[in-house]
Amino acid sequence: MNEKESQHDKAQGRRPFLLGALLGVAVGAVLCAAVILGAMPKMMIATQESRLGFDETVDALERAIPAHGWVVSSVLDMNQSMAKHNVQFGPRVKLVKLCNPEHAKSVLTTDRYVSTLMPCTMAVWEGDDGKVYLSRMNMPLMAKLFGGNIARVMGGNVARDERAILSGIVRD
């Protein structure tokens, strides 16, 4: 066998290996993307069970928010809102919208496009199991995704304040 035939045989032997490696990388990337896309919605929203009843949870939030330097912008009763449009929905849902003007100014000074996430919203809702839950954006995760000043404000001050506001209201 001459040198040219030997090189040709080696190249032929590497092709299946390279094709297998490329296929493995492609399948791995697709599986990784599927896992991330499947997990992201659950990771983006933080939900905890309330220690209190529905109305008591909303009332406790309305007291705790200003006590920690925030403002309650509004409380939206989703059931009433839908009923105005002839849509009946049984389990109760209220959205408590809150804002800290200093934190908002800091973020809006550098990243106005994030205004779509303002004001912060906490949802109080009744589960099918009869329990009361509180859901909100996962601020530390959101902060990491955005980086920069958003990460500093949302991942630091906002996340810290949220923990303080919710202390005593939600179960750990």
Rank of each mutant, 00 (worst) to 15 (best):
M1G: 14
M1L: 12
M1S: 15
E3W: 15
E3L: 15
E3G: 14
E3V: 14
S6P: 01
H8L: 15
K10Q: 02
G13F: 08
R15G: 12
L18P: 00
L19D: 08
G20P: 03
G20L: 09
A21M: 12
A21E: 00
L23K: 06
V25A: 13
V25W: 07
A26S: 11
G28L: 02
A29S: 14
L31N: 04
C32Q: 11
C32M: 15
C32D: 11
C32I: 03
A33P: 02
V35N: 06
L37G: 07
L37E: 07
G38I: 04
K42C: 11
M43G: 07
M44I: 11
I45S: 12
T47G: 10
E49L: 08
E49K: 13
E49D: 10
S50P: 10
F54A: 05
D59T: 15
A60P: 02
A60N: 04
I65K: 01
W70I: 01
V71E: 13
V72T: 04
V72L: 05
S74L: 11
L76T: 15
N79W: 02
S81C: 01
S81K: 10
N86S: 12
N86E: 09
V87N: 09
Q88I: 06
Q88D: 11
F89I: 12
P91T: 01
P91W: 06
R92K: 15
V93P: 05
V96C: 04
H103Y: 05
A104I: 00
S106R: 13
S106T: 13
L108C: 00
T110F: 09
D111A: 06
R112D: 08
Y113P: 04
Y113K: 10
S115T: 08
S115K: 03
T116Q: 01
L117H: 03
L117N: 00
C120R: 07
C120H: 08
T121S: 14
M122H: 03
M122E: 00
W125N: 03
G127R: 07
G127Y: 12
D129Q: 04
K131C: 05
V132N: 04
V132S: 08
V132Y: 03
Y133K: 06
Y133C: 04
M137Y: 02
M137R: 11
L141A: 11
F146D: 02
G147L: 02
A151I: 08
V153P: 01
M154S: 02
G156K: 08
E162Q: 14
R163K: 15
R163H: 11
R163V: 13
V170Y: 06
V170F: 07
D172T: 15
